[in-house]
Each structure stands twice: as structure tokens, then as C-alpha cells.
Design a protein around this nucleic acid. Structure first.
Lengths: 222, 222
DNA sequence: ACCTGAACACCGTTCAAGT
DNA sequence: ACCTGAACACCGTTCAAGT
């Protein structure tokens, strides 16, 4: 995270809380109670201060969430040994990002961005872009390839975590279940054919399979 | 949309507002003022009623949003002539869904689901699954292939529309710009190499290119 | 420079009562 | 059956003042 300003020790009231302390408290709240409970007011009481004090350390709530994601990736995304073979390197790099994000469902609130990739994640982006270039893509095509991978990855996370959120604490049939139960086999024969297997099929984790397909497709000359 | 109950005309006070009226008013607000302005209170005043009257016609705000998406797809997603060639049929079907959703950015609030596909969109899903089966995939693999396409599509929409939201009314450098400006070319050479072209590159619409790559990859025997 | 208190302008939803 | 009024339990953020 680029620091917004050097810590000029100058006249004025000495700070009682720091940006780090704010982020740490926010992390604690999110870990123990979920993102929904992370409010400026709740955060203020958590650190024994007032809502407005927070605004001296973060611009607003959105920035707080970005900082939180950055903090999270910084402490969980370790640079692993990657395979030398470039195609496999791409798959492992993307999967590592995916795994880290999948493990923190609150990410969805923040994730929806193309310029929100944290500093810690950039090394993985580098590996993906480089892998694509080594396989013969131009730098421009490689960036576009990375973006396709990012769309796929972000989409998987967003769709899966919000599906999970919807499942909890509700035994009414889902909207999809209602729709699938009323499916017209004459109009939609393929869907009718798999209707009863849809739930288990969509519950399977097929991220890597789809990722491999996408990477293969990106590397197939056309 | 499966109706929750038949319209039993029975004793009791005659209804003054209908579910359709509620949805119509909601559509109007979203179209003219954006999703952010769609609140139960605002909606109530729009139809000249009280917030609580709405809860007799929709379960809660989430259901309202789902109904709104269903309504939207119902009136915009027309079944087009699709190419006979299955691979091309898949691409056109997915692109049609993508185009419809891309044109209504408020979708992001609702979209984040795997079981939220509206009835009107199911025909397109059928075409995609069928296309994949015709190309030789098993029904199970075809469903998984469709899901990969849906992840990619949803991800593109979510990432792009929230990037757009962030751009509006703010001339400060974005977080990404700050990060890219401070990039270490020794550590991340590929990213440093394209750093100055990143913005225009990510602004390009490459949905179809990525989609074709994904479909090609899904259909490549492995 | 940093923090506080009070206020502004809102939310979604529940409850009890009315017609 | 459908609608209303009042209330509950909150939000993020601004402003003016204090230390």
C-alpha cells in the first residue's frame, strides 16, 4: 500500500489511534462477526473511540475495505515455488490467488474491481502475464489473457459466495429450484434432462478445470 | 416467475396496489435515478403508499430486486436466430446474455448468484448446454462448461461496472495508478513493461475474445 | 493535528392496530 | 386481506467545537 504521507512529527495533538490499529480492529470484527457487522460505529467502539476519529485515518468506508483486503493478501499470499513449465505456472498462480480469495468470503464487497488487486497479488499477476508471453502471446494479448482469467476467477468467487450466503438459514425452496421444477421438457430438453442433477453439479468445485480450459484456449493460436 | 399463489378473490379488503405496480414503480426509479435510490421508502412514496404496504406484495427487498431482474430480462431478452454451427451458437447465446446484462449496470446488486438466472434467460442456457453436448461433451461436462462461461460472464460484468462506478466524479489517481506508478521493474518486469498501457488495455472490450478462448478450451479434448 | 458531540439525512423491518 | 402509523434498531458522513 502506498503510504499517503510521511509521518511528519509536527505540532498538534499527539495521535491516540493509528491507521494500523484501525485496520487491525476492523480485521478482528470481520473475522469474528462478519463484514455485515463492520460499521464505522461498531469499529469506533471496538477501539474505544468515536466514529469521526476514524475519518482521520481512512478516507471513508470504501477505503477501509480496500485497506482490509490489502492487509489480508499481505499476510496470506506467500510467494510459492511455481512450476517452470509456463502453462502450469499460470494455472498455479491463478489458483493460488483464487484459493486465498475463496477463503475469505467477505471479499465480495471489495473484490468487484479491476484495479483493486493488492500489491501482494501483483507478483502473481506478473507470473500469469509472463507465462502467457513465454507461450508466445504479445504483451498486449497477455494482459488481455490475464484479464479473462481475472474475470473468470472473480466471477467464480462472487457467484459461489453469494450462493452460499443465500443457502444459510432458509429451508424454503430456492428460486432456481422452483424454476427447474416447472421446466418444460419440450422447450428446454437439455436442462430438463439434467434438472435433478443440477444442484450437486453446481456444488462441485470445478474452478481448476475451467481455468485450464480457459488457459488452453488463450494459448491456442487462432 | 412462478407465482407464489393463485389470485384467490376472497373476503377482505380489496387490494389497492398490485405486485406488478410495485415492480413497475421500482423499474421507473431504477431507470431514472439508479439502484442506490431504490429504497422501500422511496418506492412507497412513488406509488403513493407506505413502506409496509409493499411487504404484502414482495417478501423483502432482495426479492424485489430478483423480481426486477426477471422483469428486465423478460422484456429485453428476445430469442434471436442463432447460428446452426454449435460452437458459434454458444458464443452468440452467451454474448446475448452478456449484452443484456451489461446494458443494465444495476444488475450487479442482484447478479451475484448461480441460481438467479431468470426464466427468460433459461432458453439461452439451454442453447449453450446443448451446443456443448452437440460438440461431444457429456451432459455433466456441458453443465460445468456452462458454469465456467457464466463465471466468466458474471465476472466481466461485475468487474467492469464497478470499475466504471469508481471512475465517476473523482479525479484523484486510482489505487491501481498509484501502485503501477511505484512498480519495481526488477521484481515485476512484465507489469512494468505494460504499466503505461494498462489503462487503455483494460478499457478495451475483450469479452468475446475471452469467451471464444474459453469455449475453444472447453471443447478441446484433454 | 487529532479527537469529540451533536446532528443530518437516511435505512429495512416489526408490531399492533385499523378498515 | 390489505393497509397504516409509530417505532425499533440501526446506518455513513458533515459540521463546529474542543484540546
Amino acid at each position: 500500500m502506498p503510504q499517503p504521507s510521511a509521518p511528519r512529527r509536527a505540532p498538534g495533538r499527539p495521535p491516540r489511534i493509528s491507521r494500523e490499529e484501525v485496520i487491525e480492529a476492523a480485521r478482528r470484527i470481520v473475522a469474528e462477526e462478519g463484514v455485515d457487522r463492520l460499521t464505522m460505529r461498531r469499529l469506533a467502539t471496538e477501539i474505544g473511540s468515536t466514529p469521526m476519529a476514524l475519518y482521520h485515518h481512512v478516507r471513508n468506508k470504501e477505503e477501509l475495505l480496500v485497506l482490509l483486503l490489502d492487509d489480508y493478501t499481505e499476510r496470506t499470499l506467500r510467494r510459492p515455488e511455481l512450476p517452470a513449465e509456463p502453462r502450469e505456472r499460470i494455472v498455479v498462480a491463478a489458483s493460488t490467488i483464487h484459493e486465498a480469495l475463496a477463503a475469505c468470503p467477505w471479499i465480495v464487497e471489495v473484490l468487484t474491481a479491476d484495479d483493486l488487486m493488492s500489491t501482494a497479488a501483483l507478483w502473481f499477476v506478473e507470473q500469469i502475464v509472463d507465462g502467457l508471453v513465454v507461450c508466445g502471446l504479445s504483451p498486449e494479448r497477455a494482459v488481455q489473457g490475464y484479464r479473462a482469467i481475472w474475470y473468470y476467477t472473480a466471477g467464480e468467487i462472487v457467484v459461489r459466495t453469494s450462493a452460499a450466503r443465500r443457502r444459510t438459514g432458509d429451508d424454503r425452496p430456492t428460486y432456481r429450484e422452483q424454476v427447474f421444477a416447472a421446466l418444460d421438457p419440450g422447450d428446454l430438453p437439455r436442462l430438463a434432462q439434467v434438472a435433478d442433477r443440477w444442484a450437486p453439479l453446481t456444488a462441485e468445485d470445478t474452478y481448476r478445470d475451467g481455468l485450464r480450459a480457459l488457459v488452453d484456449g488463450l494459448l491456442t493460436p487462432r
